[in-house]
Design a protein around this nucleic acid. Structure first.
Lengths: 150, 150
DNA sequence: GCAACTGGTCCTATTATAAGACCAAAGGAA
DNA sequence: TTCCTTTGGTCTTATAATAGGACCAGTTGC
């Protein structure tokens, strides 16, 4: 009765969710994008139990989403920094953010906002075709691969 | 000791994950994008326990991500169809897919693939500024909102 | 030198998930 | 019409994950 796993799935969505689709990992990554780097900072900001955080951080380091680096303030402590693989999660976080903004807030309700360096709100994510034309859901399909299911 | 909730969060990422960030919801939505609509189809394709699926589908309908519609084959059964809100999750699914493809498969390992109607693979998601310039993580920041935390 | 801070580990109570038995309504074949 | 199968669930039970907090060693600040 182990929790169902998808680390062997043919579908990259399933494999991605298997890796980072738990209750905390993406929130930790979001905080990392916001500049948080220390164990205590994540713990305070998320209100997560320390044991949980410890487990999650260890897994994220294992996955090479975060890495341990010497603390930037010169102390003997270490910090958790986003790797290339972690930074590549940016579109996922932005996608969740934009969906949440659009559908989960009452009109006028306050929420944090993603802006560029001039302070302008960013536009919606775009999925381009090879030729640069923007695609929506109905313009695409999944090309199945042979062999085993799930 | 209830599972921590974020339905009141100021951060849209947290609120989105609170709604659909569990182990199954996004996989169900992915299957819905792939054309699955019936209880039994989801159950067979995901290998999920029926009780779990029942709970998840009920929640997704409550959230207005899916809706119950009369079966398209004219039978007395019902089907689960994506709503507008559900279709708006497309970029999130694509983001997960592209991250998974890029980082979770060995070179040459088989995986399913997202293509446009001509069969061409799609390009990577792009986050444009208001003026259309593509933005990366380091070009953006989160504008915090006042008041309460989490 | 000592108190407080940091970054954990470990234990316990509670909640969620997995697996499958069970069931009622609908559909299909004879 | 009758009986069997399919569909779409519910319910129960065992196991796994999470929340909360006690505890602890090494580091830092005073």
């Amino acid at each position: 009765m182990k929790r169902t796993g998808f680390s062997e799935a043919d579908c990259p969505v399933a494999r991605a969710l298997d890796a980072i689709g738990d209750w905390w990992s993406l929130l930790i990554v979001r905080d990392a994008f916001d500049g948080l780097r220390r164990f205590g900072d994540f713990q305070k900001n998320l209100g997560i139990a320390k044991g949980m955080l410890s487990t999650r951080l260890r897994k994220l380091v294992e996955l090479d989403v975060l890495e341990l680096v010497p603390a930037s303030d010169g102390s003997a402590y270490q910090e958790y920094a986003l790797t290339r693989r972690g930074r590549d999660l940016f579109p996922v976080i932005v996608g969740l953010r934009q969906w949440g903004e659009a559908h989960l807030y009452a009109r006028g309700e306050a929420h944090s906002d993603l802006v560029d360096q001039t302070g302008q709100p960013v536009g919606p994510l775009v999925l381009p075709s090879r030729t640069g034309r923007p695609l929506t859901w109905s313009d695409t399909k999944v090309r199945k691969v042979g062999a085993r299911k799930r």
